[in-house]
Amino acid sequence: MPLHVLPAPAPALRSVLTALSSPTAVSEARTPSLLGAQGPVSPELPLPVHVLDRVTADGTTATRLAGWRFLIRAGDRAVAAAESVPTADGWAFSRFFEGPYIPSTELALRQAEGMTQPYQPRLLSVPGLYMLALWLHGDPTADGATGHPGAADLLVPLAPAPPGIAAHRPYRVAELLPVLTHRVTPPTPLMGSPA
């Protein structure tokens, strides 16, 4: 298996398990597929979620860990996702949600399983583009809470991807980062033009 899925921090997993066992948390979630799930549900495939805050002048990415995302499985498919976020006291359940990124994440993980090189799967959020990508980190033994995308790492944009960026196509970070940088950098006003 080329994907080395890291275990989530135990308190993050516990926060999600507690929320799943709470009828109030589940019923208040806006996730019809989770509410209508038949049989037991379980959190699986924990992925650290990193946010791309900026790209520095030398091309280095500034990312931060925003939480851990778990796919919530009922039977043979994921019906929702749950997130746990870091707090001053450890980890806290954040939310349940559903939508196109759930099946898109499953598809991207299945595609990555077919690769020959081992990777550590993570998620990379690019808020400026409303984009989420499966980040295949080249060091499968690295600490999932730290680091930034390396030039040889792969990014697989999840559907729906921004216009002009193909979903489910693996890009080397060195190939996709300039595109992302160009799109999230505001244009410089011309001299004499209104700002």
Rank of each mutant, 00 (worst) to 15 (best):
A142D: 10
G36W: 10
G75N: 12
L190P: 01
G67L: 08
I72F: 11
S84N: 07
F96D: 02
V179A: 04
G150V: 00
Y101A: 04
E28F: 11
D76E: 14
R73F: 09
A81K: 01
H4Q: 15
Y130M: 02
Y130H: 07
H168R: 04
M115D: 05
T24E: 15
M1V: 12
G164L: 06
S22G: 11
D153M: 05
V184D: 01
G99Q: 03
L180T: 12
P163I: 02
A152G: 07
L13M: 13
A151Y: 01
L154W: 11
S27C: 04
A81F: 13
W68F: 14
P46I: 09
R77C: 02
S94Y: 05
P178F: 09
D58Y: 02
G192A: 10
S22Q: 13
R169Q: 15
P163V: 03
L109F: 11
T24R: 15
L6W: 06
A62Y: 00
P11D: 14
T61Q: 14
E175S: 14
A37F: 08
F70H: 14
F96T: 03
D153Q: 05
P121D: 06
Y119V: 01
Y119P: 00
D89C: 00
G147Y: 09
G39M: 13
A74I: 08
P100T: 11
P163G: 03
V173I: 12
H148K: 09
T87S: 15
S33G: 02
M191P: 10
L132C: 01
R110Q: 14
T31M: 04
I165G: 04
V49D: 04
P157Y: 06
P2A: 14
L20P: 03
L123R: 03
W91M: 07
A78N: 12
Q38W: 05
P162R: 06
V5Y: 08
L65W: 08
L52H: 11
S33W: 05
L176M: 12
V156C: 07
P9V: 14
P2N: 15
D143L: 08
H182E: 10
P32G: 13
T146K: 15
A8I: 13
L13I: 02
L132E: 14
S84Q: 06
S104H: 01
P162D: 06
A161V: 04
P157D: 07
G39Q: 12
D153A: 05
L34A: 06
A88D: 13
A29R: 09
L3N: 12
Q117M: 04
P163F: 02
L107V: 09
S104K: 01
P121W: 04
V5W: 02
P103H: 09
R14Y: 03
R73A: 11
F70C: 13
T141N: 11
H148I: 00
R54D: 15
G138I: 01
M1K: 10
H182A: 15
R183Y: 03
E113T: 08
V126I: 15
A29H: 11
T56M: 09
P103G: 10
P127H: 04
L35D: 02
P7L: 14
D58Q: 13
D53T: 09
V85Q: 10
